[in-house]
């Protein structure tokens, strides 16, 4: 199955159905690429997007990019990242790829799932 884009590692380009969160410079080592899979503009997906954005702002300010993929529009993309549950966030960079599911309302688990160390060191597991 086709990948949504070939060069999302370094190009902050918009793809159909993806949203660049901001126009920040994403060339540093610490750049994060997160992909949020949703199915339509449901409250759950809007919630997930808002939660993800807030989380990134707090922990990754200025060095992250969020792509939103709406599977209703691009169903063929579900296979590539083995998407089953909605919403799912795939951490594509940095490697390794990690996945978390749910609307990210449980911030602690989301941080653990994304392997994001919170600024004040806390429990991880």
């Amino acid at each position: 199955m086709n990948q949504p884009d070939q060069d999302d590692n370094d190009a902050p380009r918009s793809e159909p159905g993806t949203i660049d969160w901001d126009g920040q410079d994403l060339t540093g080592d610490e750049n994060w690429t997160l992909r949020l899979y949703v199915a339509g503009q449901t409250p759950k997906s809007l919630n997930a997007f808002a939660n993800l954005q807030a989380l990134c702002e707090k922990h990754l300010a200025g060095r992250y990019r969020i792509e939103v993929i709406d599977l209703l529009e691009q169903p063929q993309l579900a296979q590539g990242d083995q998407i089953l549950a909605i919403p799912t966030v795939v951490r594509r960079l940095p490697l390794p790829i990690r996945k978390i599911i749910g609307d990210l309302s449980d911030v602690e688990r989301a941080l653990v799932g994304l392997d994001l160390r919170p600024s004040p060191p806390e429990k991880r597991d």
Partner: peptide
């Protein structure tokens, strides 16, 4: 043919979810 691979250790549940992804893949 569609192979749905699920590796539990990759998946952290962070809140409410559903299986729309599976529905969409199947429907597609």
């Amino acid at each position: 043919l569609d192979f749905v691979a699920i590796e539990r250790n990759e998946l952290e549940e962070t809140g409410d979810f559903d299986l729309s992804g599976l529905f969409i893949r199947l429907g597609y």
